[in-house]
Nucleic acid binder design. Structure first.
Length: 430
RNA sequence: GGAGAGGUGCCAGAGUGGCCGAAUGGGGCGCCCUGCUAAGGCGUUGCUCGGGAUUAACCGGGCCGUGGGUUCAAAUCCCACCCUCUCCGCCA
């Protein structure tokens, strides 16, 4: 959520910044927000004047009654009572204008960082680094889609996953299941030097899902457990961001760093029928997320740190990858500045997004009311949030199956995963 | 799920209709005392919204789990919900 005061004080700057996202309806929402904010201040000003008078009268009534001057008190009571109707009307209006304003603000996206590249869509995302680890050419035995390799090795059983849960669910078996878990362990262990491991709940409240930006605008993308008014998390970002929701953190404690492995649940409502084979897209998948709560000043360095950490994991696996920066037209609603890590999968012949690292400035923190207090200063400030997928399991799993497929159809397991594979160094047909 | 108790400031804890944004104690901060430390003395100590010239003094609104209600007036009375604790039931 952007700061209303920014709208009051520097509307043109906000307008110019949001225009870079290239979405027309956003600018209309801005105007609406400004209008509602002005209206709300008019109403509350009048209401507060009335309340002040009522408070004053009440004090006088109390004093008069104590002195036994009942009839004088009753006169004042009558005056106060007469103000009540107007107060109630204004209060009601203030409430509805305020909630309309909030609803409007929640749908206005974050301002892009000045350095975020301009562009209309993903075709304009500039390459930041790479390709790294890219061979001159791929061998024919690497040009096999992972679903074929995995089927031959018996490590992926999507047919039965579909029987159990429906389309777009996946299931790994045997060494395939172990490989998924190994990737999680690897990602967690590699970041344990600086990040506190959290095992968060998978179901969260509406408020929690609103803080990170999924609600209200993207409700269709999330699984709702309506009977209990809960939502399945689409990423561990959601519970981790809200760990300190409604709290005030001492500046000295920042940045706070958390990491979590979780299952992620996504309805993939907009992409039905796409990437239906293999492990590229599923309603449920595992991911290790790294996240930081910080001051605004710490944001830029942390963004790079998170990106470096995500890169280190992929590089450590020996997969070919590249890093791109997300342009203004392709950025997510909550993003201030954002990078993607993509891994090349020779079997699918495509670049797979395996990590997205983003800085949200104070956009999420304002929604979640996450504040911090600077030492020696009065008042509080809204914190900043940043997060990144350390490792999204299924696509990395797929890329391993394709890049490390050997001539005989077996799959070589990257050395860094050996400790987590019960000694296995490759996956062979059973 | 059932029965009971409870949710007040940084913490503990008082407060059952007005003089309560809130006693008292602890903690924190500042000053005094002191060779240093301890003890002691005095003072101070919330968040938020709006106005004020957008960052001051100051003025006003709101905040005692959350949301409603009663009243001239609510921490205090009423209703609903949430959470915590104890016991019972159920359960991995």
């Amino acid at each position: 959520m952007i700061d209303v005061r920014l709208l009051r004080n520097d509307l043109e700057a906000v307008r110019a910044s949001l225009a870079r996202r290239g979405k027309r309806d956003v600018l209309e929402q801005l105007d609406e927000a400004v209008r509602l904010d002005g209206r709300s201040r008019e109403i509350t000003a009048e209401r507060d004047t009335i309340r002040a008078r009522v408070n004053e009268l009440s004090k006088q009534v109390g004093a008069l009654r104590r002195e036994g001057r009942t009839s004088e008190a009753e006169e004042l009571q009558a005056e106060s009572r007469a103000l009540g109707d107007r107060e109630a009307a204004l209060s009601g209006e203030a409430e509805s204008v305020l909630s309309a304003l909030r609803e409007c603000l929640l749908r206005i996206p974050n301002l892009p960082h000045p350095d975020a590249p301009d562009g209309a869509d993903d075709s304009a995302n500039p390459l930041v680094k790479g390709p790294v680890n890219m061979p001159e050419r791929f061998a024919d035995h690497q040009r096999v889609p992972h679903w074929d390799t995995a089927a031959a090795l018996g490590i992926l059983d999507n047919e039965r996953a579909t029987k159990i849960s429906g389309a777009m669910f996946t299931m790994q078996r045997g060494p395939g299941a172990t490989l998924s878990r190994a990737l999680c362990q690897y990602a967690l262990d590699m970041n344990a030097d600086a990040f506190e491991e959290i095992r968060p709940p998978s179901l969260v409240t509406t408020a929690t899902l609103t803080a990170t930006g999924q609600l209200p605008k993207f409700a269709d993308d999330a699984y709702a457990i309506e009977r209990d008014d809960l939502w399945a998390i689409p990423t561990a970002e959601v519970p981790l961001t809200s760990l300190y929701a409604g709290e005030v953190i001492d500046e000295a404690q920042l940045p706070l760093r958390f990491m979590a492995h979780s299952s992620c649940y996504r309805r993939e409502a907009g992409s039905a029928g796409r990437d239906t084979r293999g492990m590229l897209r599923a309603h449920e998948f595992d991911k290790v997320e790294i996240l930081a709560l910080s001051t605004p000043e710490q944001g830029p360095d942390l963004l790079i740190e998170l990106r470096d950490r995500a890169e280190r994991l992929i590089a450590g696996l020996g997969l070919p990858y590249r890093i791109i920066e997300i342009c203004t037209g392709d950025m997510g609603q909550s993003h201030h500045r954002s990078f993607d890590l993509e891994v090349y999968a020779p079997g699918c012949d495509s670049w797979l997004e395996v990590s997205s690292v983003s800085w949200f400035s104070d956009y999420q923190a304002r929604r979640g009311d996450i504040r911090f207090k600077r030492a020696g200063q009065k008042g509080t400030e809204i914190a900043n949030t940043l997060n990144g997928s350390a490792l999204a399991v299924p696509r990395v799993w797929a890329a391993i199956c394709e890049n490390f497929r050997q001539e005989d159809g077996s799959v070589r397991i990257p050395e860094v995963l050996h400790p987590y594979m019960r000694g296995a160094t490759e996956i062979r047909p059973r």
